[in-house]
Amino acid sequence: MMVAHVPGPGQWLAAEIGDSDAWKVPLTAEHRQEVLDAVQAAGPASDATTPAAFPLPTLGPLLRRVRDELADGRGFVLVQGVPVEAMSERQCEIAALGLGCHIGQIAGQGPGQAPLTHVRDTGADPSRPRTRSYQHSGRLGYHSDPTDVVALLCVRPAMSGGLSAVVSSVAVHNEVVRTRPDLAEVLYQPWWHDRRTGQGPDSFFTKPLCTPRGDGGVSISYGPDYIRSAQRGAHVPPLTPAQQEAMDLLDQLTGDPRFALTMDLRAGDLQLLNNHVVLHGRTAYEDHPEPERRRHLLRLWFTGVMTPADKR
């Protein structure tokens, strides 16, 4: 097959937008108060997952514009100033769910299909096949999550490290097309992936890294850690030389400062990423010794964000 260059606003370079504030959305004092009022009205037992259950009179329309930017623009936004410092951990959970339901339909995570995941170091060994990436403090390679959009609300940053970085997977795709069209074709072929749900065959599945979309775009799904760990499957064939070379090239490009935009997430930052057109990674981090000061993020997944605006 002949792989073509993919146009559109989802193609951007960090070198071009890194000094811009266009991707940042700072909340006003009024917005912050609306969040606090909605959390208070919802009550501690709430799992507010509809806009009606978590009313945000002026912030709600802004979040709908954020959703449009995620779906039809550059594919990532950093909302700044969620008032986490004024809330308990339970209230932060309610706020994350409440803000999220204005973005899209909240999707379940993990075997229990929980609406929200706590991202913090649990001491899990990253080399173990069933360890999830959010359970340890080591470096995470650039990857995408398996839903339309992922959101990370920073409750507390680490003592040091834990920098988040995002890359336009469309820009990386186009660079592969430009420089190595032979490897670009490999990205559209089936690859083995690991669900990390156990040792049985159900833990492994095949999926191309790149899938054409009906609008002429491309959906890019990549996770090097989960591709490499799939090799533990008894029935999974070894990576081909072309696949190895393609992964080496992807890892080289995603680490290139031309492509990678780094963010030092602070308390109250809400990072939102379109998994179809953005890859994200994280540096290793070192935590504070006190449990109450350790790095803590809340993760949400969304579906339905890519639905055309006139059908939402």
Rank of each mutant, 00 (worst) to 15 (best):
Q231E: 14
D145H: 08
E245Y: 02
I103K: 09
T179S: 10
A230L: 04
P308G: 06
L270N: 11
Q252I: 02
G18E: 13
A14W: 03
T254V: 15
L70S: 07
I220R: 10
V39E: 11
G281R: 07
Y188R: 14
Q40W: 12
A53V: 08
P111C: 09
A45R: 11
T147M: 01
L99S: 06
A246K: 07
A124Y: 01
G268V: 03
L27V: 06
S219Q: 13
L78K: 08
F204G: 11
S20C: 03
L298W: 12
L153S: 05
T50S: 15
S133M: 05
P201F: 08
G200S: 13
D145C: 09
A96Y: 04
P146K: 05
R293W: 09
A52N: 05
Q109K: 01
T262L: 03
P44Y: 10
W12E: 00
Q113M: 15
M1W: 01
E69F: 01
E34H: 13
I17L: 10
L153F: 04
G162N: 06
L261P: 05
A53S: 14
Q199L: 15
P289Y: 12
A124H: 11
A71D: 04
F259K: 02
Q91R: 11
S221E: 08
I220Q: 03
S160N: 06
A230Y: 04
S160C: 14
H136C: 02
G162R: 12
G214I: 03
A52T: 00
S127H: 12
G43D: 14
R266Y: 03
H31M: 10
L36R: 11
G255Y: 03
G198L: 11
W191C: 01
L183E: 09
R32H: 05
D182V: 01
W191Q: 02
R282Q: 06
R295F: 00
Q40R: 15
P238K: 12
R258D: 07
G217Q: 14
G8W: 06
Q199H: 12
V25Y: 00
T122K: 04
S229I: 07
L239V: 08
G161N: 14
L239P: 09
Y142G: 15
I103P: 10
V77G: 03
D256R: 09
D182C: 06
R32Y: 13
M2L: 14
G255H: 13
S88V: 11
F76W: 12
A158I: 02
P238F: 12
K207L: 00
G123S: 04
A260F: 00
C154W: 01
E245V: 04
V277F: 01
G268Q: 10
G108A: 15
G123L: 05
R293M: 13
I94V: 07
P201I: 14
A124T: 02
H5Q: 15
I220S: 10
R132H: 08
L300K: 05
V77C: 02
E16C: 08
L140R: 14
D225I: 12
M87S: 11
R282A: 08
P129A: 10
G98H: 07
L270E: 11
L70R: 04
R90W: 10
L13P: 00
L187D: 03
T117H: 09
R213M: 15
H296A: 13
S164H: 03
A184Y: 06
L209I: 15
Q91G: 12
V305A: 01
A242W: 02
Q243G: 01
F259P: 08
L140W: 12
W191F: 06
P257D: 01
T117F: 05
